[in-house]
């Protein structure tokens, strides 16, 4: 029984823990997976990749709440989330169908659809390259305040 020699050695050294520890890890993992799935019951995730289920590709949140939970939660709790400015309005569709270019970082032209006067203001007053997201939380739940509660202290731009 040469192949189990290392096991016997471990067993001799650590005793019953050799069995209990890995088992505990497995059990905890199972509990975690079960809890996660219970927390998001029947959350759709028919697609592992974007192009596999184009007919529901407009329900980005449905998959991204599992695939990229932080970004999804940030969006949900932000003003865009409360206002239902859904993902595809800014990011487009993964297969490029529709009007909006599919982009991880949408072009400022997309921001202008609703925030035109603000963008023009910034460009006129500060001459800034209109790249809004370097300062403005496009879908970000700041740890200091939630979307419709005034922050206690203002953050400075660094």
């Amino acid at each position: 029984m040469i192949q189990f020699d290392w096991f016997s050695r471990l067993r001799n050294r650590w005793g019953k823990w050799v069995i209990i520890a890995p088992a505990a890890v497995v059990v905890l993992a199972v509990i975690f997976i079960v809890c996660f799935n219970l927390a998001f019951p029947r959350t759709r995730c028919e697609a592992v990749k974007h192009l596999e289920a184009p007919e529901i590709a407009g329900d980005c949140y449905g998959c991204h709440v599992k695939a990229t939970p932080k970004a999804a939660q940030d969006w949900y709790e932000s003003k865009h989330g409360v206002q239902l400015v859904k993902c595809f309005v800014c990011h487009g569709q993964p297969d490029g169908k529709g009007e909006v270019v599919f982009a991880l970082n949408p072009d400022v032209g997309i921001c202008r659809k609703c925030h035109d006067s603000s963008v023009t203001n910034m460009v006129n007053n500060y001459g800034l390259e209109p790249n809004c997201v370097s300062c403005h939380p496009f879908h970000q739940n700041s740890i200091h305040h939630r979307a419709y509660v005034k922050p206690v202290a203002k953050k400075t731009i660094d």
């Binding site: 974007h50 993964p94 297969d95």
Partner: peptide, 11 residues
């Protein structure tokens, strides 16, 4: 290319 892991899309 599209099926490679990590690829979002190809233009």
């Amino acid at each position: 290319i599209n099926r490679l892991p990590g690829v979002l899309t190809t233009y």
